[in-house]
Simulated assay, not measured.
Amino acid sequence: MPEELYFLFAHEPYYPPHGLHEVNTTIVAADTLLHPHVRQPDGARMHHYLHQGQRTKGEIVPLATLTHELDGGAGWEQTAHWEKVVDDLLALARFGSCDSLGLGLPALERALMCSAPHTRVINCNPDTGQRETHGPDQRAAVLATLTENLQTTQAGRALWPGAGLLPAIR
């Protein structure tokens, strides 16, 4: 099981105190799902599924990727109430109970992060008026940029998931 996985989720935008830009997407350490203030056992189940499959150290896994891997969302009913878990994670992140990276992603990048890995997103370029199709390559590029930003922001150290973490499901 690779260490230092990260979990990305989109949420309703908010403006942090003294912030100039809205935050509409957040990245936390995957182990934050084991925090005692996250709905359990749902968070632990999501943590378990997050660590399945071909993951690499330092990888950012969007909620949409988990949804895709859980039969396009059909598996959520047996796995977790993901909406409640995301609400809990956002509260932890906003009030400093864990480290996080709050992002104000532009609409296209956010749409790519909220879509399954092989989904195509179509948008209208406001400069040209032309329809543009964005797919897996553009999604991978956004994740690569976010990974680079996370590494730079954290100066080589992992995000702190919070205190008193519960044991992982093995």
Rank of each mutant, 00 (worst) to 15 (best):
P167Q: 11
A80I: 04
S100H: 10
L150P: 01
A80D: 04
A144K: 13
E109T: 02
L33D: 00
G162T: 03
H51W: 04
P106W: 05
D87I: 05
N24S: 14
L70C: 13
L105C: 10
M1W: 07
L50C: 02
E3W: 08
A44L: 10
T153N: 12
A29Q: 01
P17R: 08
Q130M: 14
T56W: 08
A107V: 13
I122D: 11
Q154R: 15
I122C: 15
N125K: 06
E109F: 00
K84G: 10
L66F: 06
V61N: 00
Y14E: 12
G58Y: 05
A168Y: 00
G43A: 13
M113D: 01
Q52R: 15
E22Y: 04
V23D: 01
D87H: 05
L33I: 01
T152L: 13
R55T: 08
G73V: 09
N125V: 08
I122T: 15
L166Q: 10
E132K: 11
P36R: 10
E83H: 11
P167I: 09
Q40C: 12
Y6N: 11
A29F: 01
H118I: 09
P13G: 09
M46D: 01
P161S: 05
T67A: 09
R157I: 13
T26H: 01
R94F: 07
D88V: 06
A80Q: 03
L103Q: 02
G162D: 06
P2H: 09
L5S: 00
L101V: 14
R94H: 07
P106Q: 14
A44F: 08
A80M: 09
L90A: 12
G73T: 04
L63Y: 02
P36D: 03
T145C: 06
H81F: 10
I122L: 13
M1D: 15
H37C: 14
L63G: 00
C114D: 15
H11R: 11
P117I: 05
Q40I: 10
R94S: 10
H47P: 05
A163I: 12
G104S: 11
P36C: 03
Q78Y: 06
Q40P: 15
P41V: 05
H37S: 15
T147E: 07
T26L: 01
